[in-house]
Design a protein around this nucleic acid. Structure first.
Lengths: 150, 150
DNA sequence: TATTGTTATACTCTATAACTATA
DNA sequence: TATAGTTATAGAGTATAACAATA
């Protein structure tokens, strides 16, 4: 029952709040646009995330894959199961360590990655055509600064 | 730097791809940090999104609520149902239009919003303490520019 | 004992599409 | 007919925690 109102300017949004709101809504819009494309490929967004994270690597352990995609291990097991059913990845047991797997793209998965990732990037790129490289770089720097905070 | 607009398949692709990757991972990190806080309140992220979207308004129709949160109507019905079970929102039938509802915060919901939103902002704000107003503004402008593309 | 990954449970979100009621 | 919202269905992700196997 005890509510402590904002001290300064109850109805004023701070610059910080506006930025937060902008961050959330910006990504929502991006994800909305991106996800609808990804689903046309028959993949869910987390599945696609795994595919492009594995692309151009020689495989990652469940542990590291979870770290990079920020998916917890229990969830990741299910995602990898479904990708395995689609023959896009496989669990490779490395010699000398039977406690950990290496998740790698199958040839089929590699093929999908090579075909689909450039198309995905091009699809998103349509929205960015009018940005100059300078603007892109400014945005990237801002995002990097943001990201480093978390 | 190049002054050419983006053309997919060329060397500018790297900068663009890097930016995209940065956007996705930045938001992932943000969402991860934000969501774990939100769940401590007993709310899911979409439920919290609805609460803060309704805060400081006199209510929104399902339609407009869906537009702002980018949640499709079928999904929104379930989210509102669960918030109603928690007595945080209610469906108000406006006079003269029985086809559309107005979703409003209940007093309990208002109280939650007033207590929890500032705390949420403060929680996130800890990560931003070392940014100057100029840096915040630069980031906000970059995000706005990004958002306008979608 | 600590680490890696799986399993179990319960719930929520999601897409998609058919459906009801109102305008 | 068009619009606003609900319902139905099936699938997937999520948190959480207990569990097994290996190191």
């Amino acid at each position: 029952m005890h509510s402590q109102p904002l001290r300064s300017g109850e109805s004023d949004r701070t610059l910080f709040q506006t930025m937060l709101h902008e961050l959330a809504r910006t990504y929502q819009a991006f994800a909305n646009y991106s996800d609808s494309y990804v689903r046309q490929l028959g993949l869910t967004p987390p599945q696609f995330d795994v595919i492009i994270t594995l692309g151009n690597t020689s495989g990652l352990s469940m542990n590291r894959l979870g770290e990079q995609t920020l998916v917890t291990k229990g969830t990741l097991t299910g995602i990898i199961d479904r990708l395995e059913q689609k023959s896009l990845v496989r669990r490779m047991v490395p010699q000398g360590n039977r406690r950990s797997f290496t998740v790698v793209l199958t040839p089929h998965g590699e093929e999908l990655f090579r075909e689909v990732y450039p198309a995905y990037v091009a699809h998103l790129g349509e929205r960015f055509q009018n940005l100059s490289p300078t603007e892109l770089e400014t945005i990237r720097l801002a995002l990097t600064k943001l990201r480093e905070l978390f």
